[in-house]
C-alpha cells in the first residue's frame, strides 16, 4: 500500500472527541468500535511519492533518488513527496536527505494542507435503538514537498 496512512498519531478516543463532535453527545465510549477508513485516494502521477511509516526509510529514500536520477531514459525534473500525519516528519526527512546528497543542486518547496479523514463508529449492540453506526470526519495535517532541479536559466 503506497497509501500515506498514519498509524494513528493521536489515539482518537471517542470519549474525548465526543466533546468536540457536534452530533455525538450521548455516545458511550464502550459501546462503539472505531474503524478508520483509508484516506481518500487521489490519482497519482509517476513522480508522486506517498511516504508511509511501514516501509523502510532507506527504501523510500532510494526510491525518490531513483526517480530523480532516472535510470537511463531520463529522470524527472521534479518529484512530489507527500506525507500525512505521523509521516510528515519522515517526508521532510527524505526531502532534506535528497537535498543534502545532491550537493545543493536540488531545491525544495513545501506546502502544507489538511486532509479530511473519515471514521466509522460501529455500535457494539447494533440491534438497539441507538444502533445507527456513526460516521465522523476528522482532520489531519499533510505536507507536500516539491523536490526539483531549478530551471537552467536561473543557475
Amino acid at each position: 500500500m503506497a497509501e500515506p496512512r498514519s498509524p494513528a498519531p493521536v489515539p482518537p478516543n471517542p470519549a474525548s472527541l465526543s466533546s468536540e463532535g457536534p452530533m455525538a453527545v450521548e455516545m458511550d465510549p464502550v459501546e462503539y468500535t472505531l474503524r478508520k477508513r483509508l484516506p481518500r485516494k487521489l490519482p497519482k502521477r509517476r513522480n508522486d511519492v506517498y511516504v508511509n511509516m511501514k516501509t523502510d526509510f532507506k527504501a523510500q529514500l532510494a526510491r525518490c533518488q531513483k526517480l530523480l536520477d532516472g535510470g537511463g531514459a531520463g529522470g524527472h525534473r521534479e518529484i512530489c513527496i507527500h506525507g500525512l500525519g505521523l509521516a510528515i516528519n519522515r517526508a521532510i526527512n527524505i526531502a532534506l536527505q535528497l537535498q543534502a546528497s545532491s550537493q545543493g543542486a536540488l531545491q525544495l518547496a513545501a506546502n502544507t494542507s489538511t486532509v479530511e479523514l473519515v471514521d466509522d463508529l460501529e455500535p457494539e449492540d447494533p440491534d438497539g435503538e441507538a444502533g445507527e453506526p456513526i460516521t465522523r470526519t476528522r482532520n489531519n495535517s499533510a505536507i507536500h514537498i516539491k523536490v526539483f532541479y531549478p530551471a537552467p536559466q536561473s543557475s
Binding site: 498509524p7 489515539p11 464502550v30 468500535t33
Partner: peptide, 13 residues
C-alpha cells in the same frame, strides 16, 4: 507494541 496502545485507545478502556 504500538498496536496494543492503539487498541486500548480505541476501546476506550
Amino acid at each position: 507494541s504500538r498496536g496494543q496502545r492503539l487498541q486500548r485507545g480505541a476501546q476506550g478502556q
